[in-house]
């Protein structure tokens, strides 16, 4: 029997909000699928598009960028800048039919443990539906 597809999602979580929400969910025993491998970044605005592309090409089935809600950003407006960069990245992925829906940007505040768990669950499920990311399968990348 073929093993059930188990998505690998790379998470870039902002130190101030989303990383805190992950802890909050854990400490409150709000559980979520074990599919996200988090990298703590200082700000969602520091996530370079090439990191996301690298992850997708390296075999990530999804990339989740988590930041603070508007006006919440510790760095005043890093999340707004992240938003524009992700919009550009998604536009490019869409044009090239590289499935932009594998890249998620979500605002998850430090007080939103439930939302964190829900987002991870929803993303894991949607990526499961999609199946493995063909970008990572290609031996030519």
């Amino acid at each position: 029997m073929e093993k059930e597809f188990d998505p690998k999602i790379v998470g870039f979580f902002c130190n101030w909000c989303t990383a805190a929400a992950a802890d909050l969910a854990g400490t409150s025993r709000i559980q979520y699928p074990a599919n996200v491998r988090p990298i703590r970044v200082m700000c969602s605005g520091s996530v370079d598009a090439s990191y996301v592309i690298k992850a997708l090409l390296e075999g990530a089935d999804g990339v989740l960028i988590g930041g603070c809600h508007p006006n919440d950003c510790h760095y005043v407006n890093g999340n707004y800048k992240a938003r524009r960069r992700v919009a550009l990245l998604k536009s490019i992925l869409t044009t090239l039919d590289l499935d932009p829906d594998r890249v998620w940007l979500r605002w998850i505040s430090a007080a939103e443990g439930v939302r964190f768990a829900k987002v991870v669950r929803q993303m894991t499920e949607e990526i499961k539906e999609k199946g493995p990311n063909p970008m990572g399968k290609s031996t030519q990348t």
């Binding site: 990298i39 200082m42 605005g45 520091s46 370079d48 090439s50 990191y51 690298k54 390296e58 760095y75």
Partner: peptide, 28 residues
């Protein structure tokens, strides 16, 4: 140390001590 400059700079002339691009790539 937010690193917004580093991700805005296309050549990574602006870089972040706490997460350099080679470190990020390696972690990924």
């Amino acid at each position: 140390g937010c690193g917004i400059c580093a991700s805005a700079c296309p050549s990574q002339a602006a870089h972040l001590l706490t997460l350099e691009s080679d470190q990020a790539f390696r972690m990924i």
